[in-house]
Design a protein around this nucleic acid. Sequence first.
DNA 1: TATTGTTATACTCTATAACTATA
DNA 2: TATAGTTATAGAGTATAACAATA
Lengths: 172, 172
Amino acid sequence: MLRLKERKDAPGGRMSITTLAKGPAFELADDRPAELRTEFLEQLVGYRLRRASNTLMTDFAASMSGTGLRAVHVSILAVIEDNPGVRQGEIGRALGVARANMAPLMAELEAAGLLERTPDEADRRAVSTCLTRSGEAILKNCKARILAHERRALERLTQNERETLLRLLNKI
Amino acid sequence: MLRLKERKDAPGGRMSITTLAKGPAFELADDRPAELRTEFLEQLVGYRLRRASNTLMTDFAASMSGTGLRAVHVSILAVIEDNPGVRQGEIGRALGVARANMAPLMAELEAAGLLERTPDEADRRAVSTCLTRSGEAILKNCKARILAHERRALERLTQNERETLLRLLNKI
DNA sequence: TATTGTTATACTCTATAACTATA
DNA sequence: TATAGTTATAGAGTATAACAATA
């Protein structure tokens, strides 16, 4: 579908989240215990946040299989679509990607024909970016994949819970 | 404090989270816009989760400055403390760390004198682990740092909100 | 002098494969 | 044969420093 180098789709799904039983007393019988106690870690927001984020990133990567695009690529395309003509450095700042790492990413997307870069008229040091027709089409496809991925990965949360989660995350 | 190689404390705090104004209409005036539109990304739980997790991880690393320990080290120590004699492989499975990556981590912690490894009596292929007195003391110090870090990083959330957040994250 | 973008580079984190020793 | 642990290595992800062009 694209000419970006395809990601090696991890076959064996690692990232084995272990959910502890919530019971009051932990059963530590004579035979080998099936689960480990992890109360200290489980009480930490940072720990749960990282585990949950890893879970979603793994499913996200699977949902993008075949496109040759990773999360950062799609993020860049989405920012450009909503901010036509945006300069490369602004994208990096918005996404938390260092300038030095933006350069090869943008070169990849340009080489794949998804975006065009032109010298900024007001500041000729800067590069103004916009999507190509192909880039718009690919992004539309990716957005659909991503929304399906979120529905699948968050199926245990109600719509109300998802909104609460987003609101709380925004306060961090 | 320890003989683990110290992490190069990142001086310039990167990870610049950009929070968008929530207003209904976005002001796109003639002069340069100060912020970019990122509505598509901001609506995604996976995106917000990763940004929030990165924010906490950065502050976590700062809170551990001087100990020579990273998050995964403390996680391992905490699991061993709550599960004395636990086998190395079990720790890795509980934390989502591959066997191949557990080996050097455990060797570091053992070399630092924080844990002891002995062949498992029931299965001599396996290694049984327990904390040393030093390991217990270091872990106690780390736990205090971590709880202070969480209080600091989550000060914008009420206790009720933190519990709600943990509950929702556990459902992912 | 400061900033945009580029290149080169290094370090961490994670993933794979091959090996040993036990089971 | 299957598993626990080890080793080596390769691939992303992320960070720094130096440079050219422009402001």
